[in-house]
Nucleic acid binder design. Sequence first.
DNA 1: CCGTTTTAGAGACCTCCGCG
DNA 2: CGCGGAGGTCTCTAAAACGG
Length: 485
Amino acid sequence: MMVKLTSSSLSLKLSTLLLLHLPSTLLLSPSLIPFSCLLLLLLHFPYSLNRNRKHKRNRLKRIISSTASGMGSDDDDDDMDVDQANIAGSSSRKRKRGNRGGGGKMMELFEGLVRQVMQKQAAMQRSFLEALEKREQERLDREEAWKRQEMARLAREHEVMSQERAASASRDAAIISLIQKITGHTIQLPPSLSSQPPPPYQPPPAVTKRVAEPPLSTAQSQSQQPIMAIPQQQILPPPPPSHPHPHQPEQKQQQQQPQPQQQEMVMSSEQSSLPSSSRWPKAEILALINLRSGMEPRYQDNVPKGLLWEEISTSMKRMGYNRNAKRCKEKWENINKYYKKVKESNKKRPQDAKTCPYFHRLDLLYRNKVLGSGGGSSTSGLPQDQKQSPVTAMKPPQEGLVNVQQTHGSASSEEEEPIEESPQGTEKPEDLVMRELIQQQQQLQQQESMIDEDEKSAAFEIAFQSPANRGGNGHTEPPFLTMVQ
DNA sequence: CCGTTTTAGAGACCTCCGCG
DNA sequence: CGCGGAGGTCTCTAAAACGG
């Protein structure tokens, strides 16, 4: 009876302990599994006692006593002890002696075992929590280090940007002073640009995007100052109209106009490698207009036109376009013819002017009297608004400045007429180059007398450094500060 | 998406006219 | 009469438009 009570109370304790601790114990420590199996086996005993009380009471006593004696020496042999107790019925007399006081020992034994389990589990929980805390601390340390690195990087970038901005500002100042010295005019800088304080910080993605945009300018692209358009227009390249040697102006142009020529050469390289087809590529037409308009002043006298077209053909061949003089002359007449035809008919042309990209150039040439009565065309068919007096054709530098400011997107209706039908936003780089060339030629005639040779060459260099980098839409910055470097 | 049709741009050639 | 410029016309071609 005492054994029964003891067993039932012990089973209650063990079941509670097992419910509380056994799952985690089993999970955390595989070495404790045999011991847990023993506990489960012990939980089964009350049912057995209830079923066969009379028959199995002695048997239970034997089992418990044998188990207690066996577990004292070796925990691993618990199952074997139970089986041995069941089997060894013949040696019951020996085991009766050892049965006295077995309940108290078992209690102590199981309590000790439970305590061990709980201690082990607590130790494992502590180590687990310590590991978690350690990992969390490491993660926080890494985050802190990364934040510090990011802050340092941003600070470095900001500093570099500030330095670049300062350098470009100093270059601008030097160039503007030089231009003022050359031209004798005081340059009115746009207040938003001249007095613009540097922004406190620009996010790096925007800066990198802007730097990557202009393909030809590398170091100057950071300056991002449309200011540079002003000196470009006030400094004039000197293609001398009355030069004794007809070939030299083109050579000079090609030497001192590296970027536009490079552009055109790149554009024409794939075309010029092959014999020129019947169709004139756009770059070729533009080159023809450029050459023809550039030679116009030299052939206004009694010079035979055959020489002119031979020279143009030679220049075209130098640029990679294989066109003979007859073809050049024919093409020139055709484009003028078509231009006038369209102008007379007032036909609505598509704004993109994809098929006739040189219209605005011709428009400008006619308007500026670069192409006057000669040049394979007459102004008889032109609309009246395109006929201007030579006074308006020879614009002072300030008008050129206005023109370029329009080119760069600033809205100004002061010009007598929009340059052409195409909006400013769709203008292409070569168009800008051509327009600048024309304006430079006009302004040159005015300023030739007041510019000595050294200043002229310097101005020429400055002016021709930039046009190809100005981009077509006015969004890219004109990096004319290449000359400073 | 693909084939066909339409349309405008452009090349080539010719003729006419003015001028020296 | 030769030369240069202008005008006209034919033809080709590429892009746009359109329909199945």
